[in-house]
Design a protein around this nucleic acid. Sequence first.
DNA 1: CGTGCACTTGACAGCTGTCAATGCCGGTGG
DNA 2: CCACCGGCATTGACAGCTGTCAAGTGCACG
Lengths: 249, 249
Amino acid sequence: MHNLPLHRLKHFLGLESRDAEAFAALLGEQRHFDRHDIIRRAGHTPPEIYFLIDGWVASRVESQQPRSQIVKVHLPGDIMGDSSLALDHSAETLLALNSVTLAAVPAGALAELFVRSPRFAASLFLIAQQERVWLMDRLTSVGRTSAVHRIGGLLLSLHDRLQAIDPSRPPSYELPLSQHEIGNVLGITQVHANRSIIRLEETGLIARNGRLVTIVDIPGLRKFSGVPQREFSGTPEWMRMLRSLSSSG
Amino acid sequence: MHNLPLHRLKHFLGLESRDAEAFAALLGEQRHFDRHDIIRRAGHTPPEIYFLIDGWVASRVESQQPRSQIVKVHLPGDIMGDSSLALDHSAETLLALNSVTLAAVPAGALAELFVRSPRFAASLFLIAQQERVWLMDRLTSVGRTSAVHRIGGLLLSLHDRLQAIDPSRPPSYELPLSQHEIGNVLGITQVHANRSIIRLEETGLIARNGRLVTIVDIPGLRKFSGVPQREFSGTPEWMRMLRSLSSSG
DNA sequence: CGTGCACTTGACAGCTGTCAATGCCGGTGG
DNA sequence: CCACCGGCATTGACAGCTGTCAAGTGCACG
């Protein structure tokens, strides 16, 4: 049994709230996937969302082949598939990048929680906004920087997010993406991704050992990649007035 | 006095709901801006959001100069500034592209409406998801297609959104963006934007007359640009169970 | 030991950025 | 009214970044 990574939900809810646990109670059976398994294919839309418990998942937009693009790499604690709640046909394919454990929440159960706790609703709203900000940063990186800088930005932002899950973790992690997939995230080809990784390594900002990536110089890489370090507020003032499960039952 | 463009709010709420009007009642005084005026600068975060009543607004992420990137072109009916509700320091600068009329809603008032109408909360959540999907499509366009295709995709998606505001509108509109700004949206330089626009015009898919853009062949341009036509569900089934102002007072 | 997948490297073409000059046009001051 | 000016659009020349094609290497796995 995994210890559920509720850090993202709790970030906006605040520590006194029990809403994260209420959300966890909605989770269905845990499902497991292996690398390259497709969790949900674009076009299908079972009205449910997914909570990523363990492993990495890519969210890929299928434009006309072979122009698909990985728009998000999900890490444990992420909510997945929610961007397709607004669509009749989901926009993204969810693809396991390594061994994955997740659980689903039906949209109806989510709606009930929206009613029971406006604060939970606001929190989910803010998490979606957080995803928008990250997506905007990624668009900026892809739109305005060269391949080497994009790689740096990707490796750094993954580091930042892993750090948020486990602050005691050293600046080093196993990257389960192939270079083809890395290129797919960054909007470059596999061959050019390879060359750019090597050139980034030559700057001394990162080091590699197989797929183990180490950020050697975090401030240096942050400056180099130009990716801003976003500081997301905890529970905003206006959110404290919202009823939470902790105060209603 | 403008007729408020509530089409986007009503899309998910459904016609029987009075929530869109309740939201409209929260709007502060109308404010006016001229082209090039800065509505809100990145870094500042008054806890409020904006409702765009008339005109076009660019949302620009300020990375280290001069690497800023326009991540969204807002049209009437859009909610602006909400992606920064989660941040201590807003990520985006809002910039008037032509004559703009808008009104603000304090975050506190928004929170009250979240409590009074879970259905409104869900609607705002879905609008944020819709923005995520569009942003994902834009990232795909920038990441995986050449400059000519990106221009086509931008012009087509603007057409689609204008069409959603006024379905009777002909496939022709005044584009208030300079070529420098177009390049800034697409992740290319002004010079290359110019060349690409001219090459797109030569395909016969679009026509120009000054800044008046006409989409000559809509299906052709859709195929050419590779931008999918997203169909956003109206009120999803799971949302119908949510209490709305129409049924609670 | 063969097979398949991922990574690496080279050569070359094509797309895009940079630098620079020209033309156009509306607004301003003389 | 006209000269001047600044912003924007257009064009040319050239360099540099990135994609494509192709071949070779290394490694895990059966």
